[in-house]
Structure formats: structure tokens, C-alpha cells
Design a protein around this nucleic acid. Structure first.
Lengths: 233, 233
DNA sequence: TAATATACGTTAAAAAATGTTAAAAGGATA
DNA sequence: TATCCTTTTAACATTTTTTAACGTATATTA
């Protein structure tokens, strides 16, 4: 039921850049393991499970190409992304021949790195996006299936409209945390205006009615900020 | 079950560069269709089947981003690769947001383009083939064959009309995801007008009737947006 | 703290989109 | 032309969403 974090192996010998990247990627929700050379990277890879590797080319002890080749030998599916100051053509081609998924030359923006990683992971993680997209949430005594737009409890099965389901899913992804009004309006109404805000209030009332059979589930307002779906266990 | 050539849609308004690329890619074994603007690209894409798209950003009539968005709306899986002189960061991010798989800035070497294409196709080949398997889709207890225009279950074989089959195929390629009304109307009715929209609603009713024997298969409406064929969990 | 403004709760009506069925129109073929 | 099949148009029902109106709660300021 729990969607696991994407585990990322990052090998970068520049401690400064390495830490900056690790912090950024951790903040973006990736479980990042930082290695400072290729040897450490291959050792770590053989001990732990990873979903994607980001390797610098020029590193002491063992370079990124060599590390990539070893990683590829033990796992021929895992995405590998090279990161390097070398813009030399031969190196790029060599990287792709090893089976790299991308090759980013420094300097690059961290946003671009993230985008390129996501572009690769979109293709790789079939389960995350398309097939098994975990859109089923447990809300107290209810089971909410976003895909089917149903909210089921022992006593009854409530069909939801698309707006109801969309809003409830957003609330679920922010469970026990505040969902900002503006965020919700932009996500579901595509436009943050006065009337849409009032419309959203109407939907909050509807959702409260649907959820009223479980007193431990509360849909609280945070004045001036948004709403919070609280589930007391 | 022979393995077909990879079919490549290339949109590039610079005739010279376009022809050089087409010749190179053809020589490398790709069946390349060259378009000189975004409009031609989207028109061609809706008429023929492709495995990957390479789009220039700045093109007359319709730019590459707009074309990509339309292509992505009608096919959420097909790899899209942008090709451009613009190295602006915002543009890159915009490209990836649309769902691009790569973004190559000019000047680039044709070898690198080829490598990047192959890196993407390595990831997608299997998934594309298994997912869309030659226009035959499994929908719960049914087997839908687009080419034969049949929807077969154990109890009966339903013959479909061409509009029914066309709409059902689009819904299948968007399985468990919303198929936009406008996209469907442009794809199947070639024109997004009020009466065609009503006609489409009639067809949705027909498809629901055909699919009603499997309660796990649902054809849901997403109010104001489109329809979603739900069939997992 | 009272007055005031703003945000939210609630219900109902209006408006828009979709569901449903049947008839009309269009196209192909015997 | 008669017939069959597909598609569109029409008419009416129902559902979903928005807007309006009014009440209550929360924050702000004199």
C-alpha cells in the first residue's frame, strides 16, 4: 500500500557539489545515497537496492564509466545517468554505449537534472504512473478508490463525482497536513478565483457528509489557509 | 509477428537540416517521415502510426511545444524528443513538463541524436509492444480487436462500427486515465463541434452497453473534461 | 471589547454537462 | 428504388457543477 521512495545512488567526488545535489534531491523526495568515488559506488550498489544511478565520470580510485559498466553487468535494467564536465563527443558516445540513459554536462541546473531523471523514471517505473498507480486510500472506516470514484464503507458504497474524487484525493495526499486553498483550486479548478473558492467550500461540505459515519475522521478548516483531513488512529 | 522498422516522425522547418537528418536516420534503418511544421506533424501523426517523434521547437504555423502537447494528448506513451537552437532553461523545463523524453540543443552531432534516441527506445520498445500489441486490447473479460472491429467475450461476439472501434481504441490507449473530449473529437470526428460532441455522448452510451457484462470495467465521465476507461485493481 | 471585515458553513436554485432513447439523415449495396 | 446499416440530430431526463443568499465563526482594529 505504501508507495516507496525512489532510491537514488549518487556518485560525485566534489564534496561540495555532491552535498548540494544530495540535499536538493532529498528535498525533492528521493532517498539519496552519496558516494565519493566509483569504488564506493559499486560497493554500495552491490549491498543495497536502488532505482536509478547518477554517476560523475571523473572520480578518483574508480571512474564513472568503469563503475557504470560494473553496475550494468549486475543489473541490466537500472537507469544510469552520467554527470560530467567533459563535453567531449567520444565520451558522450562511450557513455551511451555502456547503456546510459542520459548524459548531462556541467554546468547544469538542478531543475534540469531533476527533469531528466523524471523523464527516465516515467518510462521505467511502470507501476508508479500507469498500471498500478496507487490511487486507493484508507480513510478511517472508508476505502476511497480514486480511479473508480467510489468511497466504500461496510454500510454503503458512495459514488463520487469527478470533482469530489479529485478534491478528496488531494486531501488524502496531504493527510494530517494542511492542503492550501490556492493549491487545491489550481489543481482541480485550474483557476483560483472567488467563485471557484466558494464552489470548493460547497464540495468540502459534501465530503464532510460522506465521511460523517466515522467520528475519528475530520475535515478541518484552517482559517485563511485551507483544509486538513485528520485521521486519528 | 515480424519486427517492424521503427517509424519516426521528424518535424523540422529547416529543409536543409531536415533532409540531412532524414537521410541519416533512414540510412540507420528508421522509417522517417519528414514534416516541415507543427501542423503537418500533428496531421501526419493522427493519420499514421509512429514509434517516436523528434520535433523542432521553433516552426512556422504551429510550434513544436504545441504539436507535442497535442500528440501527447492523443498518445500518452509515445517518446517525444525536442530539437532546438533555444538553450533557454525555461524552454527546457517546459519541454520536459509536456512529457518530453529528451531535449537536444543545436548544434548537436547526428551520432548523439541517434544515441539519445536509442537510449529512449531501449526503455520503451518492450512496453509499447506489450501495451498496444497490434491494436488488440484486453478489457476485463473482453478482447477488443481494433483491426477486425470486434469485441469478444465468452458469451458473445459483438461487431463494432468504425466509429465505435475508433473511440474504444482511443479509450484503451488512455486506459485508467482521462481521454480529453477535444482530443477524441479531433481524432475521430476531425472537428470539435457541439453536435459532434453530442454524437460522441451517444457512442459512449453504446460502448457502456457493450461493456456492461464485466462490472470491473467502467467507462466514467470526468465532468467537463472527458471520459476514463477504468479496468484494474 | 465592540465594531467591522473577512472567511467559512449551509442550503437551495440556476446553469451547464451528460445520459438516454428514438427518429431523421446519409451512404452503400442488391 | 428498396433495404440495411451507420451516423447524426432532436428531445427530454438526470446529474454535476456553479452561483446566490443568508447564517455563523474567526480575525482585526479602533
Amino acid at each position: 500500500m505504501e508507495k516507496h521512495q525512489t532510491r537514488l545512488l549518487l556518485a560525485e567526488d566534489d564534496r561540495n557539489l555532491g552535498n548540494i545535489l544530495k540535499n536538493y534531491l532529498d528535498a525533492k523526495g528521493y532517498a539519496t545515497t552519496l558516494c565519493v568515488n566509483g569504488q564506493e559506488a559499486t560497493d554500495t550498489f552491490s549491498r543495497k537496492e536502488f532505482d536509478i544511478c547518477i554517476l560523475d565520470i571523473m572520480m578518483p580510485v574508480k571512474d564513472g564509466f568503469t563503475a557504470a559498466a560494473e553496475i550494468r553487468a549486475s543489473n541490466k535494467k537500472i537507469p544510469i545517468l552520467f554527470l560530467t564536465a567533459k563535453a567531449l563527443q567520444d565520451d558522450k558516445l562511450k557513455g551511451f554505449e555502456i547503456g546510459a540513459d542520459d548524459y548531462i554536462t556541467k554546468p547544469f541546473s538542478m531543475e534540469e537534472l531533476l527533469m531528466r531523471m523524471q523523464a527516465i523514471l516515467r518510462r521505467t517505473d511502470e507501476t508508479l504512473k500507469s498500471a498500478g498507480a496507487d490511487n486507493v486510500y484508507t480513510i478511517g472506516i472508508y476505502i476511497f478508490d480514486y480511479n473508480r470514484q467510489t468511497l466504500i464503507s461496510k454500510s454503503k458504497e458512495q459514488k463520487l463525482t469527478s470533482k469530489e474524487a479529485g478534491l478528496l484525493r488531494l486531501l488524502c495526499t496531504h493527510a494530517n497536513d494542511v492542503l492550501d486553498r490556492h493549491t487545491a483550486l489550481k489543481e482541480i479548478w485550474n483557476d483560483d478565483s472567488y467563485f471557484n473558492a466558494r464552489s470548493m467550500d460547497v464540495y468540502i461540505v459534501k465530503l464532510r457528509k460522506y465521511l460523517k459515519d466515522d467520528p475519528r475522521v475530520e475535515l478541518l478548516n484552517v482559517h485563511g489557509v485551507g483544509f486538513k483531513l485528520v485521521m486519528n488512529t
